[in-house]
Structure formats: structure tokens, C-alpha cells
Design a protein around this nucleic acid. Sequence first.
DNA 1: GTTTGTGCAAATATTTTGCACTTGA
DNA 2: TCAAGTGCAAAATATTTGCACAAAC
Lengths: 132, 132
Amino acid sequence: MIGQRVTRQRTAIGALLDGLGDFRSAQQIHTLLAERGEDIGLATVYRTLGAMATAGEVDSLRTGTGESLFRRCARPSTHHHHLVCRSCGRTVEVQGPNLESLVRSIAAEHGFTDVEHTLEFFGTCQSCASAR
Amino acid sequence: MIGQRVTRQRTAIGALLDGLGDFRSAQQIHTLLAERGEDIGLATVYRTLGAMATAGEVDSLRTGTGESLFRRCARPSTHHHHLVCRSCGRTVEVQGPNLESLVRSIAAEHGFTDVEHTLEFFGTCQSCASAR
DNA sequence: GTTTGTGCAAATATTTTGCACTTGA
DNA sequence: TCAAGTGCAAAATATTTGCACAAAC
């Protein structure tokens, strides 16, 4: 769990995330909470999501426009990437040992240290493809 | 070329980019131009870089913090990724056949089609690491 | 002279932060 | 009690846009 105190706000954010499968922005989450009657400051939503992401409790990714999206992740605190369906938003968590080692060797090859990487996939999932 | 008119501003931005090998933000480019005595509005820098990126004249990528970086691209229209030094901006173009095939197989494995991917690396290069 | 480009300042959009107040343990 | 958490409003960041003016062709 994030922080040490159980508050109404954190409980509500956690519960909302549990009911959502897909990625949502902090702003959307704030709005959804308001619709449920949970009056929580936007700053608190940002702070909580940020802390959860740091703790590996939620996945976060950035859209092409620089907005952060969050969702409850299936495998907490494991480094992984996402394959997101462009049309329905369905998300598959991708995690390859080959991938990570390849990525690490590419960095090492060029003498870089403290290397972080961002990798996201956007495509069309099977059901959306056949629906066409 | 971008647009139809050759202006002092566009010429200066193009010339600056030719002299830079690495990724720079619009803000940095604006500052560098000012240092060269080129007084160009920040909005113009953004407009010009945006148009150049759309036209494929420059590469652009986003940092983890949502900032856009630009540079004159070495190999226009070749698929590749970037390993960028966080502190000096030095950039290595990364292009691995292993990488691409691995990426393709991951997508196929989950039944996704039309898959695009974004992959960028940010780290500290050798000279910046030793300078510390 | 007409159309495109530019500068400036204001607007957007997203996220972060300072600080006084509230609350959980 | 009292440190941790919250709300609000302001600040910070990065980028875009409206509009009058300037410049290219």
C-alpha cells in the first residue's frame, strides 16, 4: 500500500481503479470519482496516482500528447510494457526476458549508464480486426 | 522545404539544426538562436519545428516528462530508435534487426495487427558520466 | 498588393507545489 | 498528540493560438 494511512480518498481511488480495466488519465479519474459522489481534490488524485505508480501498484504510460494514463496493473512491481489496441483500448501486458536483455545490451554497447527505456505498442487486436 | 517562403527565421533554424547533431528542445533551440544573435520568437520556433517534423525534415521524440525534442535526421524515413544522453543530449541511432524481429513476434503472439511501437532510451553517456 | 509568416501576449493543458487545515493511528 | 494527508489556489512547464503587423514574392 501507498503511504501509511488509510484515508477515504485513497480507498476511493483504489476502489475505482479496481473497477476499471483500461487506462485513464488523472483528470478522468477525478471526474469519475466526482460522479460517484467522491469529492476529492485533483491534486490529491495526482499525488496518489503518482505514488501508486512509483510503488508499482499501477501502470502508467504517456500518450502521444504527453498526458499520463494510469490503470491497476495485473503484475505489480514487475517491469513490463503494454500492447494497446488502438480501437477498443484493450491492453496486454508484455514482458519478455529477451526483450529486457536486448535492451540492456544495446545500452551497454554504446557506453551509456543509468539507461531507462520507454516502449509501448499500439495495434489492432484480433476481435477489432475481425469486426471490420 | 517547409511552407513556401524563405525567411530569416527559417533559414536560421535550419542552419542551427545542421550544426547540431543531437536532440534539442524547442526552448533550447530558441536560446541557442538568441546566443547567435538571432532574435526569433519562441512561437515561431515551435511553429517551424512542428512543420518540419510533419514534413519529415526533422526527427522528433518525447522525453519521459512530455517534452518534445528535435533534430535534423540523419537517415530520413528509416525506422530507428534513439539512445539519448540525459545531460548533454548526445544521440546514438539504434537499429537492431534482433530488436525489430523481437518486437514483431511479440505483437504476433497476441494476435495484434498493424502494430506500431515507440521505443526510446535515455541514459548518461560515457563522457558525462566521467565528468561527474 | 496579396498572401504567408512573425511577434507578442494571452490562452491551454497538464501537473506540481506551498501552506494552512484536517485527520488517522 | 502530531506526523501524514488533503484542499485550494498559485506556480511551473510546455505548447498553442488570436490578432495586428511585417515581409516575401
